[in-house]
């Protein structure tokens, strides 16, 4: 599923490294860049509107594996979609971000989901619905239950976050990592039933998929 990098000289060679491409999608100014920035730099800054795409990487060391996230942060405006699309095809995970203080952004996230569903099979991509800006609880327009319910019916991961106050930002990325690894394991065990040779095939297939 993911690119697997076999560490060369490292002693931790037993633990595999997976590289996953993650893409942040959602309306303008829902906090996509802020989420990425918080997650990667653990800081909050008032960022300029993203034009085109920006790019971050982050490593997570887990017990079973090391995960490297390549995070593509996209511009929220519709017009940039064709530009961004080139760079996030073959993504392994997507965060659909909306602003809990702006109901319209949830509808937009739902549209994004529809687009993703057209492009990916359900087992090809992990999708998380993220209600950002919980620090603006006073201006909340979308109930937690509403997001939760929608995520449940569509089989998405769900979390409410705040990039500003660092609420559950790490958690959502961690949940994605766990989910990806779990799928990796399921796949591996399914493949081992069919014998060793198919494992290699599966992996080389994924390699072309993500470049």
């Amino acid at each position: 599923m993911a690119r697997k990098e076999i560490p060369g000289t490292s002693l931790e060679g037993i633990r595999p490294t997976y590289v996953y491409k993650v893409v942040l999608l959602g309306n303008t100014s829902v906090g996509k860049s802020s989420l990425a920035y918080r997650y990667v730099k653990n800081d909050f800054k008032e960022s300029l509107p993203t034009v085109g795409c920006s790019f971050f990487t982050q490593m997570i060391n887990l017990e079973v594996a090391t995960v490297k996230f390549e995070i593509w942060d996209t511009a929220g405006q519709e017009k940039y979609r064709s530009v961004c699309h080139l760079y996030y095809r073959g993504a392994h995970a997507a965060l659909l971000v909306y602003d809990i203080a702006n109901k319209e952004t949830l509808s937009r996230a739902k549209l994004w989901l529809r687009d993703l569903e057209k492009e990916f099979l359900p087992d090809e991509i992990v999708i998380a619905l993220v209600g950002n800006k919980t620090d603006l609880a006073a201006e909340r327009e979308v109930n937690t239950e509403e997001g939760e319910e929608f995520a449940r019916t569509k089989g998405l991961l769900f979390m409410e976050t705040s990039a500003k106050t660092n609420h559950q930002v790490n958690d959502i990325f961690m949940a994605i990592a766990q989910e990806l690894l779990q799928r990796e394991q399921e796949k591996a065990s399914a493949q081992s039933l069919h014998g060793r040779s198919t494992v290699d095939l599966g992996e080389s297939g994924a390699r072309t998929g993500c470049c």
């Binding site: 303008t28 100014s29 008032e46 300029l48």
Partner: peptide, 13 residues
């Protein structure tokens, strides 16, 4: 709406 969102966050510093 787009303009207002972006003007608000244009080089605030």
């Amino acid at each position: 709406h787009r303009i207002e969102k972006d003007v608000q966050r244009c080089d605030r510093n």
